[in-house]
């Protein structure tokens, strides 16, 4: 049998494939069924938060920041309660990261405020003198993509039955409704900010990236 395989590339390929695929099936599938249920009380992201999460995703914040607090005392002391699987139920993609060049952010909303983030994103060294994080001043002038965030929320609602517009859930509604809702949320955040341009933009009805990002970071609790 073995010798025959060596000479028959097609069946050989099938053999290789079965070996590597079967491992995946047994390793992944059972955990799969378990891990996807949300913890009690978890609400889907609002459109503004989702727009902020997309900035986090597109800028690859995960290259330096993890969102996974491991069950060690040193980690819970530093970052807060251990991360639970169900807390990530609405994260597509997951944003755990793999390297902490900067600190973990899974519960950053508990101990950092809007104005802290505002100063820090504009110039990290002004808040943490030894910081090596790059500044992101362009987030104060570029506008957040609310429409894409709405499209994403609508997609997960349709395809994965994420509970938008459900009782006690997050309201989504139509594109116009969610634009208006995002602006309301943005106004609350902008009220805590100092930057003139940002305030003006929100007053005009536009939402700079920084506002969306802060909405997302504040939600991480």
């Amino acid at each position: 049998m073995f010798h025959w395989l060596e000479k028959n590339p097609f069946f050989f390929a099938v053999g290789v494939f079965l070996v590597i695929a079967f491992a995946g099936v047994i390793e992944i599938l059972p955990s799969f069924a378990e891990a996807s249920r949300p913890v009690v009380g978890l609400k889907p992201y609002t459109v503004l938060e989702l727009a902020g999460k997309n900035i986090y995703k597109n800028e690859n914040c995960i290259t330096c920041h993890s969102q996974l607090i491991r069950p060690f005392k040193s980690e819970t002391d530093r970052y807060g309660q251990v991360s639970l699987s169900g807390e990530y139920a609405y994260d597509r993609p997951f944003l755990w990261g793999s390297r902490r060049i900067g600190p973990d952010l899974h519960r950053v909303g508990n101990y950092r405020s809007t104005d802290w983030h505002e100063n820090h994103m504009m110039d990290p060294k002004s808040v943490v003198p030894q910081s090596i994080m790059p500044a992101y001043p362009y987030m104060f002038t570029k506008m957040a993509d609310i429409d894409t965030a709405y499209a994403e929320a609508l997609t997960v609602k349709k395809v994965f039955a994420t509970p938008y517009d459900a009782p006690n859930g997050t309201k989504l509604g139509t594109l116009e409704e969610s634009r208006a809702a995002a602006l309301e949320e943005a106004k609350v955040i902008a009220a805590d900010m100092k930057n003139k341009e940002v305030k003006d933009a929100v007053a005009r009805g536009e939402i700079p990236q920084i506002v969306a990002l802060i909405a997302y970071l504040n939600r991480l609790k």
Binding site: F22, A23, I26, E27, S31, A33, E34
Partner: peptide, 13 residues
Amino acid sequence: NLVEVQGYARIIM
């Protein structure tokens, strides 16, 4: 039970 099945399947494999 799935996790148990996984454990056994893995060892046997």
